[in-house]
Design a binder for these strands. Structure first.
Lengths: 156, 156
DNA sequence: CGATATAGTCAAGCGCGTTGACCATCTCAT
DNA sequence: ATGAGATGGTCAACGCGCTTGACTATATCG
């Protein structure tokens, strides 16, 4: 046997695989709900709107994309009934983007699915190890970005 | 105080951020080498070709994309001089795709950069924790895929 | 041998982002 | 108060990376 010492798999590859695993599983499960049309980016927007409405420019900034791209996404999400544009109170140029009841339901559904998925991960390793994973990743990402969690930028 | 228990950040988000962190840093550093034009997907292909050549169809399967998409990518990489198409020995339909010396140099460069980056991660947490991270992610992904590491599919 | 599968390519189209140009409105220094 | 510039939003055109569909040439196997 000419067995090499098993090469350690690049973290980048594992991260990509794990991420896809989660996202794909999420959307497989979402497909069985009334929210099958929800696209991966929706979640980030809904999450941002949960606390309080925002403008299109805010969302563009959050996602790290242009206003135009954000605007298109908001169009789609509005057509889907996940959020709503309203005239802005203090600024006649701006529009307020607010999450709808349907949008909130998606959020609740997604969170419940994530809980399931993370529980499966915990069965494969253990609850504490999953929490270490979360903590370590958070720390690493934060340190690399001056203490802040950077804005989303789903993938590339 | 109506302080909620600090919501734990979704693993999916952390994974996405960590992955982007790594990939972006990699390409920032690559930009200072003679291989600035290398795109994220190149690495996966080169890695696959390191051991032995493959056909376009193999590569398509590996990347989880169509033959057509793979073909275009191979075009680009061939123009860049990272790999080479040759007639296949036993099959007149097929073409053999082989890594070039330049392609191998990219691989060496990338690995060295990854070592640096992973070392930085280890400084933020610790060497053993980075290795736990790697081991846990690998296990989780494998278990979810019947013991095999799935094919690449860079992102979505 | 012929039916069917497979390797590869060309062409058109789509999703999701971009750049560029533009208008309406807000802000602020003068 | 006003005018220059910044900002919010939209429309239009286009690019990149992928898709589906159609096609040719060659392999494979009953």
């Amino acid at each position: 046997m000419k067995r090499e010492p098993a090469p350690s798999i690049p973290l980048a590859r594992l991260l990509a695989l794990a991420y896809r695993q989660l996202i794909d599983d999420l959307h497989v499960r979402l497909a069985t709900t009334p929210y099958a049309e929800v696209r991966p980016t929706f979640g980030y927007v809904l999450l941002a709107l949960r606390e309080h409405p925002a403008t299109g420019a805010d969302i563009a900034l959050l996602l790290g994309v242009t206003k135009q791209a954000a605007s298109k996404l908001i169009d789609t999400m509005e057509h889907g009934g996940y959020l709503q544009r309203q005239p802005h109170q203090n600024d006649a140029r701006a529009k307020t983007v607010a999450i709808t009841a349907k949008g909130r339901k998606v959020l609740v559904t997604v969170e419940s699915i994530y809980r399931d998925l993370e529980a499966e991960w915990a069965r494969v390793t253990s609850r504490p190890r999953v929490e270490s994973l979360r903590a370590d990743l958070q720390k690493i990402v934060q340190v690399a970005n001056g203490g802040q969690l950077p804005t989303v930028r789903p993938t590339r």
